[in-house]
Design a protein around this nucleic acid. Structure first.
Lengths: 199, 199
DNA sequence: GTCTATAATATGATAGAC
DNA sequence: GTCTATCATATTATAGAC
């Protein structure tokens, strides 16, 4: 199997780096600290990765993998509110997933400093979701489920609060504050939004 | 006047630091680079500031000053949509203000790394606006302008897209991409939101 | 594949002459 | 208030023994 091709030490470095990058960012994480967390010397680390940037790129490799597929969007969108509720359930799951949360932290820290990451965010993360939701809203309009309007703007209005709530959850969790109050916002958002677009 | 108490060099350091922090963040900005931008040596810089952190704190001093006051909120809120439109105009002006944009960049870069800044964001920035908007929506509900619901949740739904649009503007401007398409989102948001809450 | 040793550079900060 | 000189430390990365 493919995963056996990655050595134990390399995986350990990746995991240690993920933890540190998520807390201290790229510049705040030294190769020394990563090696120390793994339990090896810096020099040993260079047997597995070319340099610090290579570690970072490996860690960030699946930062923009998304659970939202455009498969059967034409059929799925006809479910109306049910489709939106499903979307939000996925979004919420991702928001509370420990591993995804670390990647989200890295993304937020480096978003304004790393051009490649920023462009991936806008293309893979934002634009991907906006086009998917736009298509869904377009179908819903044609099906007479929701009122006619600009599907892309609707997509923005639907997506924006989800992102804001996710950011808040992330900030709260950094300081180990409870997120129960925030947790319910997702479902309330679907209800509120649906009421505002339904015919 | 009070501003005369701050020397020219100290102001120059502050401005140079603002530019650099906004692009490279705290860790990515060295005292050397700040001094170099001002045109003096590092050592001379320490005659004006105790250390690097003191420069950062001075730069960040008015990062959370807000144009949104709770004054006359009872009266202002009765204007309904007009109140929301005014709020968004202010928010939009801040989003496109060059100086405020730099401070917003610093805030976004350090938000996940600096606990003090993060707590100020949640208290001064988020919570301040949420309570202000909550009060306004409460008044609007009592005045029969909008449908009865949870004012605080409504405030979240109203504020979240504004933040998301501002973040997008900031990201676009870093890469010198045009923001005209984003510019109209603010007004459209007010229209869309008002339609969804109006009785 | 890991270690010690080391290089080259960058960093925050201070001492003391002018 | 600025300069030169210097320090202590941290950083990324490499060389070569085991």
């Amino acid at each position: 199997m493919a995963s056996a091709r990655v050595s134990k030490t390399k995986t350990a470095i990746r995991n240690a780096a993920l933890e540190l990058f998520a807390v201290y960012g790229y510049k705040g994480t030294s190769v020394r600290k990563i090696a120390s967390k793994v339990g090896i010397r810096e020099s040993a680390l260079y047997n597995h990765f070319k340099n610090k940037e290579a570690i970072f790129l490996t860690v960030c490799a699946d930062i923009f993998t998304t659970p939202f597929s455009k498969k059967n969007i034409q059929e799925e969108a006809k479910k109306g509110k049910k489709f939106l509720a499903n979307f939000v359930v996925q979004y919420k799951l991702v928001s509370f997933d420990a591993n995804k949360e670390k990647l989200f932290r890295i993304m937020m820290i480096e978003l304004l400093q790393d051009q490649t990451l920023r462009q991936n965010f806008l293309n893979e993360f934002h634009h991907h979701n906006i086009t998917l939701l736009s298509e869904a809203f377009f179908v819903m309009m044609q099906s007479g489920l929701i009122r006619s309007s600009d599907p892309m703007f609707m997509a923005n209005e639907f997506l924006a609060p989800l992102f804001y709530y996710r950011l808040q959850i992330t900030l709260f969790r950094i300081d180990a504050e409870p997120t129960t109050a925030l947790s319910t916002l997702f479902e309330k958002h679907v209800d509120f939004f649906w009421e505002s677009v339904i015919v």
